[in-house]
Amino acid sequence: MQKKTILITGATDGIGRALAKIYWTRGDRLILVGRRTLDTLNNPLYTKNTYCRADLSQDKCADRVCAFLNAQKIDAIDLAIQNAGTGYFGPIAEQSVESIREITAVNLMAPLRLTHALIPYLKKANGKLVLIGSITHAFPCPDYAVYAASKEALNTLGRNLKIENDINVQIIHPGATRTGLHRKIGMDNEKTKKFPSAEKVAQKITQAIDGRRLVATIGWGNTWARFLGRYCEGIVNAMVRTT
């Protein structure tokens, strides 16, 4: 197989890091985007030629990524996976402005900014844009409304970009996965121990990326759940209301 150039955001933890490892063993050329400093990342994956430090909650994040690509003399990208994400768990009235701002910026603005900036790179390689959503976009989520809303917006952005047909787009919705996300957003950690591992989910995501579906949900249970959330809105709302 030919070596591909693959960009992954949020590649320093969880699903993104697992994806990076899979493509690394395939021998692809990686561009890994994260907010941590390089010296804290003790893994051969991250070098000054593969790791681009950019805080995706910042306005100018896309400029930073493009500057890195230029410095690396990369002008074409085969696959851009917009995976970085963050959240908040708790009552709506207690969520801070900073948290609403960060979730909107990282989960929605950054993918939008990066997509806008990367289109020429993707076009050049006839590449593919992958947006990592979440099945929560199809559900009412009283404890993380802003997160679910950002994922629903991302899903709709992808759907309409697909119709506009300037670039090849895919939206992938994982279900609950055992990563650091839940701890970071202050969600209780007992339940999360039973979730499938990031490695397993990442493996399935790469299979979906090799396929052609516009919207791919990871796992049969999640596919059903997402279908119910979208098409049996009333029933699902009533179920959530009583729990």
Binding site: P140, P142, Y144, A145, V146, N237
Partner: peptide, 9 residues
């Protein structure tokens, strides 16, 4: 989506 979550919250 936000409204749907809010409605229940």
């Amino acid at each position: 989506s936000y409204a749907r979550s809010l409605s229940i919250a």
